[in-house]
Write a protein that binds this DNA or RNA. Structure first.
Length: 494
RNA sequence: GGCCCCUUCGUCUAGUGGUCUAGGACGCCGGCCUCUCACGCCGGUAACACGGGUUCGAGUCCCGUAGGGGUCACCA
């Protein structure tokens, strides 16, 4: 069996979006699984819309996701001569012809056909032009495009799609499409095939929106005498209104960088995306890289489009709830050693990082992550909700303030008293803290939850969090006492 | 509109003619745990688009209808 070679060919006209990323992921998995190669090819022939910024963004996005490629990036524009040469060859061998119809004429015909409710395809005006007429047009300098000469015969062009099965399209339904513009520049349909042949691409895994291109491109492969690769058309990703997700109508939410900026773990995003239109055939939903590569097959890609379940303006779920839940799952189950550097990055960015967390407080830092991560959803939570764990400069959560503190005015006096008791202890352990706190509550005729939850508010700034007794020990006597004694200030301005 | 593709819980999906009173996950609801919130565990809610066939038997096969999507550029 020949080598598996797949490619990811983005056009650099914007950021990498999740649909593109998913295509890249599927190709990448397929290459890895079959010990093949993934080729990154930037399709930048649309000079007006291609930007360097976009190229950089796409590459950064792939790198962040952990999608590595084996060849490239190649740039389509660097192979312009090859594209032109192949176009000339098609012309010379009678697989294409020059068309002198102007865009205006064609538009008029198209409109007329529309008005008459007729279907319009190129009518073949120039298809069988005599050599004399062609020569005359050329002598007159009439601009022309090059059209592919679709065989006029019965039957269909067909191929076996790895996900959709056999696909057929009648020759008569395919019009003579343009492969070279009047300015001499070859178009996507041709360039793409020429590049795929040169790059020896064996499998083309792309979106179902390319299906009509595929039948036309197969014709080009044939005309060029090249072997037709295996095709696999992936289902599209739609939004809740069943519209194709796009940068234009959905904005940042579909951008890979959005997830990077919102504290996603790259692998969690990959895991979420791969499940959008594919499943392993069993109940597994979380995979290591190796497991995913092992499990992945083209045949298990679904045929139908899947919906990216995101509701605009939902305060609780800023993106698909499943994506968040997968991210949260990894956040609380991955080895802390792997999580630490990511949290560090987040804290550095938020100005909360202290060098001691890498040195004398390294173990404390890891323990902190262990304690707080299970209720977090993204890396952002470490700097937001987790702020008080890493810095003395934190804001108290409004709910915590109202519900756990201000509701019980007596706490203004009691919390500093509790601080005194802790201070008097030979050692502030979780067990000792619990004993003291319970005694204290009983003595003051309070439910133990009241001083405890108040302590949580004052020490962590939060209404929720790990067991408070353990936190007393974890924060250490000095901080605990200081923050408890600081409690009265919260009552002052209220 | 032509051509092509698709159609199982709100969402992601399992299901390749009997084991489907349709399974899992996310979400949602309830319970347990408990100093709070989570985690975890337990339980609940919720789907085969519709109509005809074929068959002893259909979510699974066929046809039709409806619905959805893609595509119809001198973009990629």
């Amino acid at each position: 069996m020949s080598e598996v070679r797949v490619r990811f060919p983005p056009s650099p006209t914007g950021y990498l979006h999740i649909g593109g990323a998913r295509t890249a992921i599927y190709n990448w998995l397929y290459a890895k699984k079959h010990h093949g190669k993934l080729i990154l090819r930037i399709e930048d022939t649309d000079a007006d819309r291609s930007t360097q910024e976009s190229i950089d963004g796409i590459i950064r996005g792939l790198e962040w996701l952990g999608i590595d490629w084996d060849e490239g990036p190649y740039f389509q524009t660097e192979f312009a001569a090859d594209h032109i040469e192949k176009a000339e060859r098609l012309l010379a061998e009678g697989h294409a012809y020059k068309c002198f119809c102007t865009k205006e004429e064609l538009d008029a015909k198209r409109e007329a056909a529309m008005a008459a409710k007729m279907q319009f395809g190129y009518d073949g005006t120039c298809r069988d032009l005599s050599a004399e007429k062609v020569a005359a047009h050329e002598a007159a300098g009439t601009p022309h495009v090059v059209r592919f000469k679709v065989p006029r015969k019965e039957g269909s062009v067909a191929y076996d799609d790895k996900v959709l099965g056999r696909i057929e399209r009648k020759y008569s339904e395919i019009e003579d499409f343009v492969i070279v513009r009047s300015n001499g520049k070859p178009l996507y349909l041709l360039c793409n095939v020429v590049d795929d042949i040169r790059d020896r691409i064996s499998h083309i895994i792309r979106g179902q929106d390319h299906m009509t291109n595929t039948t036309r491109q197969i014709l080009i492969y044939d005309a060029l005498g090249a072997k037709i690769p295996v095709f696999a058309h992936m289902p599209l990703t739609l939004d809740l209104k069943k519209a194709k997700i796009s940068k234009r109508s959905h904005g940042e939410i579909v951008a890979v960088h959005f997830y990077q900026e919102h504290g996603f773990l790259p692998w969690a995003l990959v895991n979420f995306l791969v499940l959008l239109g594919w499943n392993p055939g069993d109940d597994r939903e979380f995979f290591s890289k190796e497991e995913l590569i092992e499990a992945f097959t083209l045949e298990r890609i679904n045929k139908s489009a899947s919906i990216f379940n995101y509701r605009k303006d939902d305060p609780k779920f800023f993106t698909d709830p499943k994506a968040i839940s997968i991210n949260a799952h990894y956040l609380r189950t991955m080895p802390v050693e792997e999580l630490s550097p990511l949290v560090k990055e987040e804290l550095v960015a938020a100005g909360l990082w202290d060098e001691s967390y890498d040195n004398e407080k390294k173990e404390w830092f890891k323990k902190t992550l262990e304690m707080i991560r299970e209720r977090f959803h993204t890396l952002k939570d470490f700097s937001a909700e987790g702020c008080a764990y890493f810095s003395d400069d934190f804001e108290i959560d409004e709910k915590a303030l109202n519900k756990n503190l201000l509701k019980h005015p007596e706490l203004q006096e009691l919390l500093p008293q509790l601080a005194d008791r802790f201070e008097a202890l030979p050692e502030l352990t979780a067990a000792e803290a619990e004993r003291v706190a319970r005694e204290f509550a009983e003595e003051k005729e309070l439910k133990v939850g009241i001083p405890i939850n108040a302590s949580r508010a004052v020490i962590t700034g939060q209404i929720k969090g790990p067991s408070m007794f353990e936190l007393f020990e974890h924060f250490g006597r000095e901080k605990v006492v200081a923050r408890l004694r600081n409690a009265p200030k919260y009552f002052e301005n209220s």
